[in-house]
């Protein structure tokens, strides 16, 4: 189980690096918002791997808070970019 967790975390780390590249030079602010939401999803998936592999159940409420915060943050940021033209 631990070897599976290491492999899954390695895959998620590679995915995080790819998302980070898009986050650094996304040409628009919307690309950065999409990349940030993907990064939050990757953190949630990595915490799931940690919960499953090492039975670390205090992370479970953190998962709920992270997913809801990612949703609220990206939605509000996208609305704000739609309203204000100087942020695009």
């Amino acid at each position: 189980m631990s070897a599976v967790a290491v492999v899954a975390l390695a895959l998620l780390s590679v995915a995080g690096m790819l998302v980070l590249v898009r986050l650094v030079h996304g040409p628009r602010a919307l690309d950065r918002i999409v990349a940030l939401e993907a990064m939050v999803s990757l953190v949630v998936a990595g915490a799931c791997v940690g919960v499953a592999a090492w039975e670390y159940t205090p992370f479970v409420p953190v998962l709920i808070v992270l997913s809801l915060l990612g949703f609220i943050g990206s939605t509000v940021a996208a609305r704000l970019i739609g309203e204000r033209e100087d942020l695009r």
């Binding site: 967790a5 492999v7 895959l11 995915a15 590249v21 690309d31 999803s41 998936a45």
Partner: peptide, 27 residues
């Protein structure tokens, strides 16, 4: 283990698409 590995592979594919696709809506 199968579910975790499949989920990690899908996350990696999503990140790859996020990096490679041409415009914002495709990403």
């Amino acid at each position: 283990a199968v579910l975790l590995l499949t989920g990690a592979v899908f996350c990696l594919l999503g990140a790859l698409g996020l990096l490679r696709f041409p415009d914002t809506v495709s990403r």
